[in-house]
Design a protein around this nucleic acid. Structure first.
Length: 424
RNA sequence: GGACAGGUGGCCGAGUGGUUUAAGGCGCACGCCUGGAAAGCGUGUGGUGGGGAAACUCACUCGCGGGUUCGAAUCCCGCCCUGUCCGCCA
């Protein structure tokens, strides 16, 4: 969400950002309409407040006369007229304000200067780590897993539908191991506070982080209750401090949370559907940071490193990709995807997405901080990243560490959590 | 789910239609006092939006949303949240 002022003072900045996202056609008329609505809104505010000031004076004069037992009938009649005029103006104001808010909620964030313009083909590989294993002779994770008996796709589909899975035995334990390993590293070594949060959130939370109103069709909702299943822990964790004012000394501040994640994947039918590649429900540990605007660039790098470290501990080769503006999420100002190599399917799989939202989410969720006692509150910057998403990490582990005999050797860091060094 | 009680500024707390355009206190900031401090005294102390170069000014804000009224923290309706008890329950 943007400030109303973006339509007065920074329209060219906004237009440029939308151009770089390749969305000029989609938004050109929306922006023009926003500018008109903002002017209307301000004119109406001036008119209505003028009338209200008049009404307040009038009422005080009525009070004074009544105290002195004087006649006030004439003033009361004048007040009645003012009331009607105010009601009419307020109706107008409510309407133009609602239209304007809808536009401001709809506009995407302004990407940072170093984000390349263009669509996904302009994404830039920033670095690579490790040596990708040759695909030759590597089986896909669904074959490895099925031979090990740790993944039951058929029964997941029976119980819930396609895109829902059952992990069994060592597979179930591996999920639990990853959760503990990831959270332990973030709390013990990276200074995050661990939180355990609801997986069902209200509408305001979904609007706060930017999932709604625009992406309603991607969300699972309990519509009767106005509640939604979280698509990521980002939603409950970022909204922890909605409508609050933090103190500068609290920043930067980080939280880590495990939650299941629910996504309808409405626009992705038939894409990457096999095995663990794309699920309607999956598990993920998420890291979220709040900081000041001055800190956010550095914090973005730090958070991304926190996610990368986990891949390095797991010994999984990966690359860091800077997303081009057109591939960057609506709320994000800059995103690095971490993609781990899955030799069996012969692809890099996105296992983490590390974004800085600048003040876009903070405006929507009204999360501020006070720079110093007595100073005006400012919006915080919010950041988050997966650290990490389990199913694709499991896919990479199974494919990268598979051995000729069908067993899978686990990286050292998981041994204590699994109680074994080998699956199978 | 049912019954009852509540929701006022950073905190406590007064306030049942018009000098409350929110009393008083605590806390906080600054000043005076002091060798220094405490105490005491004085001044100030939220948020949002509009106008303005600024000083400043206007409007809104007493859980949220409607309504009644010339005028609502105060009256009416709906909702949300918290507490206590009951019911149900992992």
């Amino acid at each position: 969400m943007h400030d109303y002022r973006v339509l007065r003072d920074d329209v060219e900045l906004l237009r440029g950002a939308i151009e770089r996202r390749g969305k000029r056609d989609q938004y050109a008329s929306v922006i023009d309409r926003g500018i008109t609505l903002d002017a209307m809104r301000r004119a109406t505010i001036q008119a209505v407040e003028e009338k209200k000031a008049e009404r307040n004076q009038n009422s005080q004069e009525v009070a004074r006369r009544k105290r002195n037992k004087e006649d006030a009938e004439e003033l009361i009649a004048a007040g009645r007229t003012l009331g009607e005029e105010i009601a009419a103006l307020e109706y107008e104001l409510t309407r133009s304000q609602a239209d304007l808010d809808a536009i401001l909620l709809d506009l995407p964030n302004i990407t940072l200067d170093d984000v390349p313009a263009g669509d996904e083909s302009a994404n830039r590989i920033e670095k690579t780590w490790g040596t990708p294993r040759e695909s030759a002779g590597c089986r896909a994770h669904w074959d490895v897993a099925s031979q090990l008996g740790i993944l039951d796709l058929e029964r997941g589909a029976k119980v819930s539908g396609s895109g829902f899975i059952v992990m069994r035995g060592a597979g179930a334990r591996l999920t639990r191991a990853l959760m503990n390993f990831f959270i332990d590293v973030h709390t013990r070594e990276h200074g995050y506070e661990e939180v355990w949060v609801p997986a069902v959130v209200n509408r305001r939370s979904m609007v706060g982080t930017g999932q709604l109103p625009k992406f309603e069709e991607d969300m699972y909702g309990l519509r009767e209750e106005e509640l939604y299943l979280v698509p990521t822990a980002e939603v409950p964790v970022t909204n922890l401090y909605r409508d609050e004012i933090l103190t500068a000394s609290d920043l930067p501040r980080g939280f880590v949370a495990y939650t299941p994640c629910f996504r309808r994947e409405a626009g992705a039918a038939g894409k990457d559907t096999r095995g663990l590649l794309r699920l309607h429900q999956f598990d993920k540990v998420e890291i979220v940071r709040y900081c000041t605007p001055e800190q956010s660039a550095e914090e973005h790098e730090r958070l991304t490193r926190h996610a990368e470290t986990l891949l390095e501990r797991l010994g999984l080769p990966y690359r860091r990709v800077l997303l081009a503006a057109g591939d960057t999420g609506q709320s994000s100002a800059k995103t690095w995807d971490l993609e781990a190599w899955a030799p069996g399917v012969g692809k890099f799989l996105e296992v983490s997405s590390c974004s800085t939202f600048t003040d876009y989410q903070a405006r929507r969720a009204n999360i501020r901080y006070r720079p110093a006692a007595g100073e005006k509150p400012r919006f915080v910057h919010t950041l988050n990243g997966s650290g990490l998403a389990f199913p694709r990490v499991i896919a990479c582990l199974l494919e990268h560490y598979q051995q000729e005999d069908g067993t899978v050797r686990l990286p050292d860091c998981l041994h204590p959590y699994m109680g074994t060094a080998v699956l199978g």
